[in-house]
Write a protein that binds this DNA or RNA. Structure first.
Lengths: 140, 140
DNA sequence: TATTGTTATACTCTATAACTATA
DNA sequence: TATAGTTATAGAGTATAACAATA
Protein backbone atom coordinates (compact mmCIF):
# COMPACT_ATOMS: atom_id res chain seq x y z
CA UNK A 1 0.00 0.00 0.00
CA UNK A 2 1.30 3.43 -0.89
CA UNK A 3 2.09 5.67 2.03
CA UNK A 4 -0.34 8.29 0.79
CA UNK A 5 -3.15 5.75 1.20
CA UNK A 6 -2.00 4.34 4.51
CA UNK A 7 -4.63 5.24 7.08
CA UNK A 8 -2.23 4.84 9.98
CA UNK A 9 0.22 7.23 8.39
CA UNK A 10 -2.48 9.74 7.49
CA UNK A 11 -3.88 9.63 11.01
CA UNK A 12 -0.55 10.20 12.70
CA UNK A 13 0.43 12.90 10.22
CA UNK A 14 -2.87 14.76 10.59
CA UNK A 15 -2.76 14.39 14.35
CA UNK A 16 0.77 15.76 14.43
CA UNK A 17 -0.21 18.80 12.41
CA UNK A 18 -3.24 19.58 14.56
CA UNK A 19 -1.50 18.98 17.88
CA UNK A 20 1.41 21.20 16.86
CA UNK A 21 -0.89 23.97 15.71
CA UNK A 22 -3.07 23.69 18.81
CA UNK A 23 -0.10 23.76 21.17
CA UNK A 24 1.16 26.89 19.45
CA UNK A 25 -2.25 28.52 19.74
CA UNK A 26 -2.49 27.56 23.41
CA UNK A 27 0.92 29.04 24.27
CA UNK A 28 -0.50 32.15 25.93
CA UNK A 29 -2.66 30.05 28.24
CA UNK A 30 0.33 28.19 29.64
CA UNK A 31 -1.36 24.91 28.73
CA UNK A 32 -0.56 22.22 26.21
CA UNK A 33 -3.13 19.94 24.64
CA UNK A 34 -2.85 17.13 27.18
CA UNK A 35 -3.17 19.43 30.19
CA UNK A 36 -6.01 21.19 28.39
CA UNK A 37 -7.91 17.93 27.95
CA UNK A 38 -7.46 17.06 31.63
CA UNK A 39 -8.70 20.51 32.64
CA UNK A 40 -11.71 20.16 30.38
CA UNK A 41 -12.74 16.85 31.93
CA UNK A 42 -12.13 18.17 35.44
CA UNK A 43 -14.44 21.11 34.82
CA UNK A 44 -17.44 19.21 33.51
CA UNK A 45 -19.22 17.63 36.46
CA UNK A 46 -19.30 19.64 39.69
CA UNK A 47 -17.78 16.82 41.70
CA UNK A 48 -14.91 15.99 39.37
CA UNK A 49 -13.70 12.62 38.24
CA UNK A 50 -11.18 10.17 39.63
CA UNK A 51 -7.72 10.04 38.09
CA UNK A 52 -8.35 6.48 37.04
CA UNK A 53 -11.34 7.59 34.99
CA UNK A 54 -9.34 10.45 33.51
CA UNK A 55 -6.61 8.03 32.45
CA UNK A 56 -9.09 5.71 30.81
CA UNK A 57 -10.97 8.42 28.95
CA UNK A 58 -7.83 10.19 27.78
CA UNK A 59 -5.97 7.03 26.86
CA UNK A 60 -3.10 7.92 29.18
CA UNK A 61 -1.24 5.93 31.77
CA UNK A 62 -2.35 6.73 35.35
CA UNK A 63 1.19 7.93 36.10
CA UNK A 64 0.93 10.51 33.35
CA UNK A 65 -2.33 11.77 34.82
CA UNK A 66 -0.56 12.29 38.15
CA UNK A 67 1.96 14.61 36.50
CA UNK A 68 -0.65 16.56 34.57
CA UNK A 69 -2.88 17.00 37.62
CA UNK A 70 0.19 18.05 39.67
CA UNK A 71 0.90 20.70 37.05
CA UNK A 72 -2.67 21.99 36.89
CA UNK A 73 -2.95 21.87 40.68
CA UNK A 74 0.22 23.93 41.15
CA UNK A 75 -1.27 26.51 38.79
CA UNK A 76 -4.44 26.58 40.89
CA UNK A 77 -6.63 25.35 38.04
CA UNK A 78 -7.78 22.06 39.59
CA UNK A 79 -7.85 20.51 43.06
CA UNK A 80 -7.78 16.97 44.34
CA UNK A 81 -10.82 16.20 46.52
CA UNK A 82 -11.18 13.04 48.59
CA UNK A 83 -13.77 10.69 47.18
CA UNK A 84 -16.73 10.32 49.53
CA UNK A 85 -17.19 6.70 48.48
CA UNK A 86 -13.63 5.40 48.06
CA UNK A 87 -10.80 6.32 50.39
CA UNK A 88 -8.19 5.48 47.78
CA UNK A 89 -9.57 7.66 45.03
CA UNK A 90 -9.17 11.39 44.56
CA UNK A 91 -11.62 13.40 42.52
CA UNK A 92 -10.06 16.02 40.27
CA UNK A 93 -12.26 19.09 40.09
CA UNK A 94 -11.74 22.39 38.30
CA UNK A 95 -11.44 25.53 40.42
CA UNK A 96 -13.26 28.75 39.52
CA UNK A 97 -9.98 30.04 38.10
CA UNK A 98 -9.60 26.76 36.20
CA UNK A 99 -12.99 27.24 34.57
CA UNK A 100 -12.04 30.76 33.64
CA UNK A 101 -8.75 29.68 32.06
CA UNK A 102 -10.50 26.80 30.31
CA UNK A 103 -12.95 29.16 28.66
CA UNK A 104 -10.16 31.30 27.22
CA UNK A 105 -8.06 28.29 26.29
CA UNK A 106 -10.97 26.68 24.47
CA UNK A 107 -11.18 29.64 22.12
CA UNK A 108 -7.43 29.53 21.47
CA UNK A 109 -7.46 25.77 20.90
CA UNK A 110 -10.35 26.01 18.47
CA UNK A 111 -8.46 28.62 16.46
CA UNK A 112 -5.29 26.54 16.25
CA UNK A 113 -7.28 23.48 15.31
CA UNK A 114 -9.21 25.16 12.53
CA UNK A 115 -5.97 26.46 11.06
CA UNK A 116 -5.33 22.88 10.00
CA UNK A 117 -8.90 21.71 9.46
CA UNK A 118 -10.43 24.65 7.63
CA UNK A 119 -9.89 22.83 4.33
CA UNK A 120 -12.84 20.66 5.36
CA UNK A 121 -16.40 21.96 5.37
CA UNK A 122 -18.46 21.83 8.57
CA UNK A 123 -20.27 18.83 7.19
CA UNK A 124 -17.03 17.05 6.32
CA UNK A 125 -15.68 17.78 9.78
CA UNK A 126 -18.83 16.24 11.24
CA UNK A 127 -18.28 13.13 9.13
CA UNK A 128 -14.68 12.92 10.28
CA UNK A 129 -15.78 13.37 13.89
CA UNK A 130 -18.33 10.62 13.57
CA UNK A 131 -15.88 8.14 12.03
CA UNK A 132 -13.12 8.86 14.54
CA UNK A 133 -15.53 8.56 17.46
CA UNK A 134 -16.24 5.00 16.42
CA UNK A 135 -12.52 4.20 16.27
CA UNK A 136 -11.82 5.78 19.63
CA UNK A 137 -14.85 4.27 21.36
CA UNK A 138 -15.02 7.29 23.62
CA UNK A 139 -16.37 6.19 27.01
CA UNK A 140 -19.04 8.42 28.59
CA UNK B 1 -16.87 21.98 23.08
CA UNK B 2 -17.07 18.60 24.75
CA UNK B 3 -13.92 16.52 24.52
CA UNK B 4 -15.81 13.72 22.79
CA UNK B 5 -16.54 16.11 19.93
CA UNK B 6 -13.09 17.70 19.80
CA UNK B 7 -11.58 16.77 16.44
CA UNK B 8 -8.04 17.41 17.65
CA UNK B 9 -8.54 15.10 20.60
CA UNK B 10 -10.20 12.41 18.49
CA UNK B 11 -7.40 12.58 15.93
CA UNK B 12 -4.62 12.26 18.46
CA UNK B 13 -6.45 9.51 20.36
CA UNK B 14 -7.16 7.50 17.21
CA UNK B 15 -3.62 8.02 15.97
CA UNK B 16 -2.22 6.85 19.30
CA UNK B 17 -4.29 3.67 19.21
CA UNK B 18 -3.31 2.81 15.64
CA UNK B 19 0.38 3.63 16.07
CA UNK B 20 0.58 1.54 19.24
CA UNK B 21 -1.15 -1.38 17.61
CA UNK B 22 0.95 -1.11 14.46
CA UNK B 23 4.21 -0.93 16.41
CA UNK B 24 3.22 -4.05 18.32
CA UNK B 25 2.37 -5.86 15.08
CA UNK B 26 5.68 -4.76 13.52
CA UNK B 27 7.75 -6.02 16.47
CA UNK B 28 8.98 -9.14 14.69
CA UNK B 29 10.26 -7.09 11.76
CA UNK B 30 12.52 -4.99 14.00
CA UNK B 31 10.89 -1.86 12.62
CA UNK B 32 8.67 0.77 14.16
CA UNK B 33 6.18 2.85 12.23
CA UNK B 34 8.49 5.77 11.47
CA UNK B 35 11.32 3.58 10.20
CA UNK B 36 8.76 1.59 8.26
CA UNK B 37 7.50 4.72 6.51
CA UNK B 38 11.05 5.76 5.60
CA UNK B 39 11.76 2.30 4.21
CA UNK B 40 8.57 2.39 2.19
CA UNK B 41 9.48 5.68 0.56
CA UNK B 42 13.05 4.54 -0.06
CA UNK B 43 11.81 1.46 -1.88
CA UNK B 44 9.42 3.15 -4.31
CA UNK B 45 11.49 4.75 -7.06
CA UNK B 46 14.59 2.84 -8.18
CA UNK B 47 16.84 5.80 -7.58
CA UNK B 48 15.63 6.69 -4.11
CA UNK B 49 14.82 10.09 -2.70
CA UNK B 50 16.86 12.72 -0.93
CA UNK B 51 16.62 13.00 2.83
CA UNK B 52 15.24 16.47 2.47
CA UNK B 53 12.32 15.12 0.43
CA UNK B 54 11.79 12.32 2.93
CA UNK B 55 11.62 14.85 5.77
CA UNK B 56 9.10 16.97 3.93
CA UNK B 57 6.85 14.09 2.92
CA UNK B 58 6.93 12.45 6.34
CA UNK B 59 6.55 15.68 8.28
CA UNK B 60 9.76 15.04 10.17
CA UNK B 61 12.74 17.23 10.93
CA UNK B 62 15.74 16.50 8.66
CA UNK B 63 17.75 15.55 11.75
CA UNK B 64 15.22 12.85 12.60
CA UNK B 65 15.53 11.46 9.08
CA UNK B 66 19.30 11.18 9.58
CA UNK B 67 18.76 8.94 12.61
CA UNK B 68 16.14 6.77 10.92
CA UNK B 69 18.26 6.31 7.78
CA UNK B 70 21.29 5.51 9.98
CA UNK B 71 19.23 2.82 11.66
CA UNK B 72 17.92 1.32 8.42
CA UNK B 73 21.34 1.57 6.84
CA UNK B 74 23.01 -0.29 9.72
CA UNK B 75 20.43 -3.03 9.26
CA UNK B 76 21.28 -3.21 5.56
CA UNK B 77 17.79 -2.22 4.45
CA UNK B 78 18.66 1.05 2.70
CA UNK B 79 21.79 2.72 1.38
CA UNK B 80 22.83 6.31 0.83
CA UNK B 81 23.76 6.99 -2.79
CA UNK B 82 25.39 10.19 -3.98
CA UNK B 83 23.04 12.34 -6.00
CA UNK B 84 24.18 12.63 -9.61
CA UNK B 85 22.83 16.16 -9.83
CA UNK B 86 23.58 17.65 -6.38
CA UNK B 87 26.81 16.99 -4.52
CA UNK B 88 25.21 17.91 -1.22
CA UNK B 89 22.30 15.52 -1.43
CA UNK B 90 22.23 11.79 -0.74
CA UNK B 91 19.58 9.58 -2.25
CA UNK B 92 18.17 6.98 0.10
CA UNK B 93 17.40 3.78 -1.77
CA UNK B 94 16.08 0.45 -0.53
CA UNK B 95 18.35 -2.59 -0.88
CA UNK B 96 17.05 -5.95 -2.14
CA UNK B 97 16.93 -7.09 1.48
CA UNK B 98 15.11 -3.87 2.38
CA UNK B 99 12.42 -4.60 -0.20
CA UNK B 100 12.08 -8.11 1.15
CA UNK B 101 11.69 -6.90 4.73
CA UNK B 102 9.29 -4.18 3.60
CA UNK B 103 7.00 -6.73 1.98
CA UNK B 104 6.76 -8.78 5.16
CA UNK B 105 6.46 -5.69 7.36
CA UNK B 106 3.65 -4.31 5.21
CA UNK B 107 1.53 -7.36 5.94
CA UNK B 108 2.23 -7.08 9.68
CA UNK B 109 1.48 -3.36 9.71
CA UNK B 110 -1.80 -3.85 7.87
CA UNK B 111 -2.87 -6.41 10.45
CA UNK B 112 -2.07 -4.18 13.41
CA UNK B 113 -3.82 -1.26 11.77
CA UNK B 114 -7.00 -3.15 11.00
CA UNK B 115 -7.17 -4.32 14.59
CA UNK B 116 -8.12 -0.76 15.44
CA UNK B 117 -9.96 0.18 12.24
CA UNK B 118 -12.06 -2.90 11.58
CA UNK B 119 -15.04 -1.19 13.19
CA UNK B 120 -15.24 0.87 9.99
CA UNK B 121 -16.41 -0.62 6.70
CA UNK B 122 -14.16 -0.48 3.64
CA UNK B 123 -16.25 2.37 2.33
CA UNK B 124 -16.01 4.29 5.60
CA UNK B 125 -12.26 3.76 5.64
CA UNK B 126 -12.10 5.18 2.13
CA UNK B 127 -14.04 8.23 3.28
CA UNK B 128 -11.71 8.68 6.22
CA UNK B 129 -8.69 8.31 3.94
CA UNK B 130 -10.05 10.90 1.56
CA UNK B 131 -10.76 13.45 4.30
CA UNK B 132 -7.40 12.98 6.01
CA UNK B 133 -5.54 13.25 2.72
CA UNK B 134 -6.95 16.72 2.28
CA UNK B 135 -5.83 17.73 5.78
CA UNK B 136 -2.35 16.32 5.30
CA UNK B 137 -1.89 17.71 1.80
CA UNK B 138 0.35 14.79 1.00
CA UNK B 139 3.00 15.94 -1.49
CA UNK B 140 3.73 13.64 -4.41
C1' DT C 1 24.19 33.67 0.47
C1' DA C 2 21.23 29.51 0.68
C1' DT C 3 20.64 24.57 1.09
C1' DT C 4 21.84 19.41 2.40
C1' DG C 5 23.15 16.62 5.64
C1' DT C 6 24.91 16.14 10.21
C1' DT C 7 25.72 16.56 15.30
C1' DA C 8 24.31 17.97 19.74
C1' DT C 9 20.98 19.13 23.13
C1' DA C 10 16.78 19.63 25.52
C1' DC C 11 12.09 18.89 26.11
C1' DT C 12 7.74 16.22 25.60
C1' DC C 13 5.45 11.97 25.32
C1' DT C 14 5.05 7.01 26.20
C1' DA C 15 5.81 2.66 28.64
C1' DT C 16 7.06 -0.22 32.79
C1' DA C 17 7.82 -1.56 37.20
C1' DA C 18 7.59 -1.03 42.01
C1' DC C 19 5.68 0.96 46.14
C1' DT C 20 1.65 2.80 49.63
C1' DA C 21 -2.75 2.97 51.20
C1' DT C 22 -7.05 1.59 50.95
C1' DA C 23 -10.86 -1.92 49.33
C1' DT D 1 -6.03 -10.16 46.62
C1' DA D 2 -7.03 -6.39 43.96
C1' DT D 3 -7.31 -1.36 42.88
C1' DA D 4 -6.11 4.05 43.12
C1' DG D 5 -2.60 6.85 43.30
C1' DT D 6 2.28 7.73 43.33
C1' DT D 7 7.32 7.62 42.24
C1' DA D 8 11.16 6.54 39.38
C1' DT D 9 13.30 5.44 35.17
C1' DA D 10 14.08 4.52 30.47
C1' DG D 11 12.98 4.91 25.76
C1' DA D 12 10.69 7.13 21.80
C1' DG D 13 9.23 11.33 19.55
C1' DT D 14 9.73 16.42 18.72
C1' DA D 15 12.06 20.92 18.36
C1' DT D 16 16.24 24.05 17.92
C1' DA D 17 20.55 25.60 17.01
C1' DA D 18 24.97 25.28 15.05
C1' DC D 19 28.34 23.41 11.80
C1' DA D 20 30.75 21.48 7.27
C1' DA D 21 30.29 20.76 2.50
C1' DT D 22 28.27 22.13 -1.63
C1' DA D 23 25.12 25.09 -4.66
Amino acid sequence: MALSEDLGFLLSRASGLVVRSTNAALADSGLRVRAYSVLELACIPPGGRSQRVLAEVLGLDPSQVVQLVDELSSAGLVERLPSPTDGRAKLVAGTPRGRQVLEQAAALAATGQQEQLSCLSAEEQATLRSLLSRVVQFPG
